[in-house]
C-alpha cells in the first residue's frame, strides 16, 4: 500500500510512523534544491498558496515562503494587522473569501488550538498548520526530527529531552508525538509549574533537575521561555530560571557524552541557553533552520494537487 498524507497537515499526533518517514525521506532531495545555482524547481507551478498568519512569526513564515517559492508556487501573505480579520471577520469567512479567489493551499498560524483542523474541515484547499495555540507545530516537529536523524544517523533509540516550558509549547507536543512514533525515548525537564499535569502517563520521563537530563540525553531540545510566563507567575525570575534550568557550558562539560543541542528559536540568550552553547560545536540550531525549508518543501509537495481522477487522462505520460 502506498503511503500518502491526505488533504491537510494538522499535527503529528495522528500521522503514522510510515507517513512521518515519507515526509522525512522526501525532505532529503529537497535539501539539494536549495544548494542549486537556481534554487527553484517547477513542481508547484501554477499553485497559489496563502500564508494566513494570525500571530506574529518571522522564522516560520519566511521558511514557508522560501519553500513555496522554491517550488514555483505563487504566494500571498495575509497578516492579521491591517486585514479584515481585525474587523471581526471570522476565520472561515476569511478563508472562504480567499478560496473564492481560487487558491490551492493555506498555511495557517493561529492563537487558538484546533484552528487548523477547524479550517481544514471547512474548505477544499489543503491546509497546513504552522502553529495553532498550544496544540501543535507539525513542521517544526518534523524539522527537529530531520535534524536529529542527520546528526545521529537515526531516531530510534535516541534519548531526546525537551527542556523548559512544556505546558504552553506546541513545539513540545509535536516533538513528543513525532519522536515517540519513530522510536525515540522522550523526556521533559523544567519547573513543575511549566509541565503539563499527568505527562508521565504518556510514557515521558520527567527530570526535575537539568543535570539529570544532561546525564541521560543524547539530544537537548531547549524551548524558548516566553517572557510573559514570568509576569503570570509561572517562574519567580529569569535569573532564577537560568540558574536552575539554563543550559550552560559548565553543565554540558560534565555530561558523560557529547550532546546535540537544538532550539526552535528565537532564543533568549542567557535565559534558557548560554550563548557559548548556542554558538558552540554541539549546536545544530542553524541546521534546524536549513532543514526547515526542506521539510516544508516536502510537505507542500506531498500535499499539493494530487488529482488521481485525472491520472487516466495522463496515461502514457512520462515513461
Amino acid at each position: 500500500m502506498t503511503v500518502t498524507l491526505g488533504k491537510d497537515l494538522v499535527g503529528l499526533e495522528f500521522l503514522s510512523a510510515d507517513q512521518l518517514r515519507l515526509i522525512l525521506d522526501t525532505a532529503e532531495p529537497f535539501k539539494e534544491v536549495s544548494e542549486r545555482p537556481i534554487k527553484k524547481v517547477p513542481a508547484l507551478r501554477g499553485k497559489t498558496i496563502v500564508n494566513l498568519f494570525f500571530e506574529p512569526s518571522t522564522r516560520t513564515r519566511i521558511s514557508f515562503e522560501f519553500a513555496e517559492k522554491r517550488l514555483s508556487a505563487d504566494t500571498v501573505n495575509v497578516a492579521v494587522s491591517g486585514s479584515s480579520v481585525s474587523k471581526g471577520e471570522t476565520l472561515v469567512d476569511t478563508a472562504k473569501n480567499l478560496e473564492a479567489m481560487r487558491i490551492d493551499m493555506v498555511v495557517i498560524r493561529h492563537g487558538a488550538s484546533g484552528a487548523a483542523q477547524f479550517l481544514g474541515n471547512r474548505i477544499r484547499s489543503n491546509v497546513i498548520n504552522a502553529g495553532d495555540g498550544k496544540h501543535e507545530h507539525p513542521t517544526q516537529g518534523l524539522l527537529d526530527m530531520l535534524t536529529i536523524r542527520d546528526k545521529l544517523g537515526k531516531i530510534e533509540g535516541v534519548n531526546v529531552c525537551l527542556v523548559g516550558d512544556i505546558l504552553h509549547s506546541r513545539v513540545a507536543r509535536s516533538n513528543l508525538w513525532g519522536l515517540t512514533k519513530l522510536g525515540a525515548r522522550v523526556a521533559v525537564c523544567g519547573p513543575r509549574s511549566l509541565l503539563p499535569r499527568g505527562i508521565e502517563q504518556l510514557g515521558v520521563r520527567v527530570f526535575g533537575r537539568i543535570e539529570e537530563a544532561i546525564e541521560w540525553a543524547d539530544v537537548l531540545n531547549v524551548l524558548r521561555l516566553q517572557l510573559e510566563r514570568m509576569e503570570k507567575g509561572f517562574i519567580p525570575s529569569l535569573r532564577e530560571y537560568y540558574r536552575v534550568f539554563g543550559v550552560t557550558m559548565e553543565r554540558l562539560e560534565r555530561a558523560p557524552r557529547a550532546l546535540t543541542i537544538m532550539h526552535p528559536g528565537p532564543m533568549n540568550r542567557g535565559v534558557e541557553i548560554d550563548s557559548r552553547v548556542a554558538d558552540g560545536p554541539h549546536s545544530v540550531i542553524l541546521d534546524q533552520v536549513t532543514n526547515g525549508v526542506a521539510v516544508r518543501m516536502a510537505v507542500l509537495y506531498l500535499l499539493a494537487g494530487g488529482r488521481p481522477e485525472l491520472a487516466d487522462a495522463a496515461k502514457g505520460g512520462v515513461e
Binding site: V33, V41, P42, L71
Partner: peptide, 14 residues
C-alpha cells in the same frame, strides 16, 4: 527529473 515532470499534477501518490 520528477520535479520537472509535466504530469506531476496528474499522478496520484507523489
Amino acid at each position: 527529473i520528477t520535479l520537472y515532470r509535466d504530469d506531476l499534477e496528474l499522478v496520484g501518490p507523489k
